[in-house]
Design a protein around this nucleic acid. Structure first.
Lengths: 211, 211, 211, 211
DNA sequence: TATGAATGAGACTTCATTCAT
DNA sequence: AATGAATGAAGTCTCATTCAT
């Protein structure tokens, strides 16, 4: 009577994608609380209840998006870490690729910022932990790249963990400035400049820097 | 006359302060939407309705807090802009003072980040505009300091507006990294290091840099 | 230390009057619920708490106003009832005088309509009863006037109570039409016309009418 | 297909009707402000939130009721205007039919009176305008009927707009008297009597009346 | 699989009234 | 007599989630 074959996986994935698209739009515009499941399902062209067949909760949906983007960024950093060539070159490439990624996924970037602010409230401890793991992986990969540079003699003996924080912080700070001043501020250029400054600092002859 | 006078301004300010303290706590922990007027008034030791004697709306209360902190930061930057001495010295002092301010007002910092994310939804256009004005003032003061350095011959002829964005972005990015990794990350040190790198870049003999 | 002679009665009455003026304004514009004691006291130039020195509750204040107007109208009808001369003449005079009263006290008229609608909710049973007594007095006086006309031979033997209802209903219906269409509808003229029609009907030779 | 269809219109209408029934009860007893959505939904046997699936706001619900009744009355008047036969006959029929309608829908009548008083506060300007349009339509239809009578020679050349106001005013005044004195006052009889008086006046040989 | 009507906890805010001064 | 800060009950409305079809 009501039986019907389950949608093949790819169909399910397509529909999930439609929901995610709609969710990105509203989450990135309004943040987690202000975006309603109602507007998301409407934009996705499904009924309110259907959402819950694809995602258990609103939180789950939100996390899926955060996860997608962080995964992408993590993969980018890890790819650069695992690539061949001098660390310097790979760091420069990272700056360019990150800027490209941000430019491509501006809505995702906005969304990430929205959620970052109240992640501790938006997400259950479980999810917060998962987000933390992503960031840790990114930080570690950055630190690894620095260590590679140290080992290869490109960089001085610096505190790789500390400078990983700095690189990530700068990247995010410039990204934010860009998101809030898109027309005026050239993020990609700033990324490159700052990366150059940092790399020069990493390379600088001992005796001048201390960290 | 027998009539009791209205609370003198300072008493009113003290009571307002009590409410603000409670509000900072919850807003900075949970963000605007998740913090309820109920828990704020309870923590402030007043009745639910009393809040509205001091602030017209929850939004007004939130904005008062944002405003306080941004005002403080703006004053700091403008003080450094108007102080005597080489721009280089003043920029270094700014880095130190900013780190001090953040350390002192960590809760305020958290709150600012929470609200920044969904300010466009939290605050009415009127308020968003006022926030923007604060940030503009800060950016302008930073650009002014750079221009002063250029005029005095300390710095090369660089695009002061662009580098003001960079300074602000870096400051905020490092602040964020600190807020999320308080124990591991030394914000003050990073502020100083980055400021030194930037100042060295501003001073660098022409022919090497391009911006 | 705080002792002072009580205000002499006339001063108290003057202040009460100021409050009533303000109250009429807001009650007549917005009705009982929507008018707030806050705006009334502000307009009256007194503190919120002071209102309660003059009136026990908002309801009391409202009733005082209703009472004033109904008292005025009752006095008018009873004056006409007790005056000398043919009932016909006195009814005609009543129509004119009522129109004059309404014109003079338009705000009061509006207020009466507002309160009439939800009097059962606005006023406690006690007050509703008092309002009812006013209306009964008015109805009785009208019926008395008809009876006087019957006894004097001016009118046929009609049901005086029934026609008192009719007179009052018509008066109020036309008053309402006037309040809602002030510019277009000539209440005074309509009052006179309808009174003439009714009086003619009361006088009409038996054999034609039936009531 | 397995999907259940949305409630068909008639089912929705039935459920809406249940809510309206409950709403009429409380609005007509207490007026707009004093009636709470809580008691309405409780009486309708639904959850508090469900109300908002059927009506956007409390105001919307209230307006739907007002609209229903005014629509009914408007249709009645327009039906009489468009019917065949002498205007006199049609006016008489109108009186009877209106009395019947009122008797049938007493709760609606009460409600209309409640809302009429503070409609300007209860309803947004948009809705007030819609109410006004209903009353205008009723007034115009009445004036049209008078004009028809004039053209057909039944009535003298009187000011049809003015007398439409009078007819409506009288109808409403008597209705009100009835609502407040149900047991004592015979509205239907009064309607007929007054209509007869008015029609006689409209027909009266020229030279006596002036309007 | 999909629907959408229904739920109900909980949010912000208003405002008549009180009371220490 | 007068003040106005404080109260807190109560009201309307939102929205994530459920569940009978």
């Amino acid at each position: 009577m009501c039986a019907r074959k389950a949608d093949p996986p790819e169909i399910r994935a397509i529909k999930e994608g439609k929901i995610k698209q709609a969710a990105i739009k509203f989450f990135s515009e309004k943040g987690f609380h202000a975006a309603t499941t109602g507007e998301i399902t409407e934009a996705a062209g499904i009924a309110k209840g259907t959402l819950y067949w694809y995602f258990n909760t609103k939180e789950d949906l939100a996390f899926a998006l955060v996860s997608d983007m962080l995964e992408e960024f993590r993969k980018l950093v890890e790819e650069m870490r695992d690539a061949r060539g001098p660390a310097t070159t790979r760091f420069r490439k990272l700056a360019t690729r990150a800027a490209e990624l941000y430019n491509q996924e501006k809505a995702y970037c906005r969304l990430l910022w929205k959620f970052r602010a109240d992640q501790h409230y938006v997400f259950s401890p479980d999810y917060v932990e998962k987000v933390r793991i992503y960031y840790d992986a990114i930080l570690s990969a950055l630190a690894d790249m620095i260590d590679q540079g140290i080992r290869s003699g490109e960089f001085r003996r610096i505190n790789s963990r500390h400078w990983a924080f700095v690189i990530l912080g700068i990247t995010e700070g410039l990204e934010l400035e860009w998101l809030e001043n898109e027309d005026e501020f050239d993020m990609e250029k700033a990324f490159r400049e700052m990366m150059d400054l940092l790399l020069a600092h990493f390379r600088k002859a001992p005796g001048k820097g201390r960290s």
